[in-house]
């Protein structure tokens, strides 16, 4: 992107939009030019788009919002392309890679055995953690973990456990003696906004990919793996969990984060949009479109009832899209 100096910014903006083949009517273009020249700051008439974007980010975005378009060419309420791939990590019992636009998350589950707590002898446990390694963003440096990481970890943990997605009883092996502890670790590989949405998607995908190994108890009361070939041997133990190889997921939570700015709602914001317009609203719905959780962590814009209703409606639509992506990933896996 490099334009000669001297064009009016309005023209440049318009050119930018036209190049993305979204703005159709000539009428709209004319309106944009006139609007820009009327409200533009003194610099705007002689500045390149990239420079303007960096120096006056809010102004830059608001110009786009007026035209119901976003700098990456999306309409305001459209989420970025989403993909899910299951089984990315072979050293884990279940894993998934989720991408929303450039935001990339890798979730993996490792099962270990624990002694269940006295008050819940036939329940297992899920430990969820979210990591932002220094590779994911220029802001994160080694030894200085990102501030948002523990926040997202807590949200994920609350959402997954309170949605009733996984019955903890399913993770029981021997009542009072042994149960599965599922360590669900989510790594952000590329951070470009909507971290929670991508992390939740990768987490639920990893849970649906989870394959529970067949185990049995040995003489010392420890849980050991039953390998396929040991079945024929005379000292083969009776497996404790032969029929339970997969978790039954009662419901699947899906989320959508929106940025609120003035009267606009922007679905699935990028990192740039999140940093400029910092009122976020995250809605989590389950498979039957019931509300699981709603986060609105501060920010200058107030969320009125109608705005929240709009966000919930957007999430309802988005849930269908994401469900489809996940179902396709699961059926691809089964074909393989």
């Amino acid at each position: 992107m490099c334009w000669a100096l001297g064009f009016s910014l309005g023209y440049l903006l318009c050119f930018d939009i036209c190049q993305r083949r979204i703005c159709g009517s000539v009428h709209q273009r004319v309106r944009l030019v006139s609007m820009a020249s009327a409200s533009g700051s003194d610099f705007s008439s002689e500045m390149e788009v990239d420079a303007f974007r960096r120096l006056f980010p809010l102004h830059f975005h608001e110009r786009h919002l007026l035209e119901s378009i976003r700098p990456d060419g999306r309409p305001l309420r459209k989420a970025r392309d989403t993909t899910v791939a299951l089984g990315a990590v072979t050293s884990a019992n279940g894993s998934a890679l989720a991408k929303i636009g450039c935001t990339t998350m890798l979730a993996a589950i490792k099962l270990e055995v624990m002694t269940p707590a006295v008050e819940s002898p036939d329940e297992g446990c899920i430990a969820i953690d979210f990591h932002m390694p220094p590779i994911c963003s220029p802001i994160v440096r080694p030894g200085r973990p990102a501030e948002v990481a523990p926040v997202v970890a807590k949200q994920l943990s609350d959402t997954i456990l309170s949605s009733g997605m996984v019955g903890l009883k399913e993770l029981s092996l021997v009542s009072g003696k042994a149960a599965w502890m599922a360590y669900l670790d989510i790594y952000c590989l590329d951070a470009d906004g909507s971290l929670f949405d991508a992390a939740l998607l990768s987490a639920v995908a990893a849970l649906s990919h989870l394959q529970i190994p067949i185990v049995s108890l040995n003489e010392e009361g420890r849980v050991v793996l039953c390998s396929e070939d040991s079945e024929g041997e005379k000292f083969a133990k009776v497996p404790v969990n032969k029929e339970k190889r997969k978790l039954t997921l009662n419901t699947i939570p899906f989320s959508l984060t929106c940025v609120l700015h003035k009267n606009y709602i922007l679905a699935d914001p990028t990192a740039e949009e999140e940093s400029i317009m910092d009122t976020l609203l995250t809605v989590v719905l389950d498979s039957s479109s019931q509300l699981v959780s709603l986060y609105k962590p501060g920010g200058p814009a107030l969320a009125h009832t109608s705005v929240i209703q709009d966000c919930v409606a957007l999430t309802r639509q988005r849930r269908k899209e994401v469900q489809k992506v996940l179902d396709e990933a699961i059926s691809d896996m089964e074909v393989d």
């Binding site: 270990e112 624990m114 707590a117 430990a127 943990s157 456990l161 793996l225």
Partner: peptide
């Protein structure tokens, strides 16, 4: 960050039965 309150219990990975 265990699923239930309280300290995370000690866990171990099940080892292959045939040693």
């Amino acid at each position: 960050m265990a699923g239930k309150g309280g300290a995370t219990p000690a866990t171990y990975a099940p080892s292959p039965s045939t040693k």
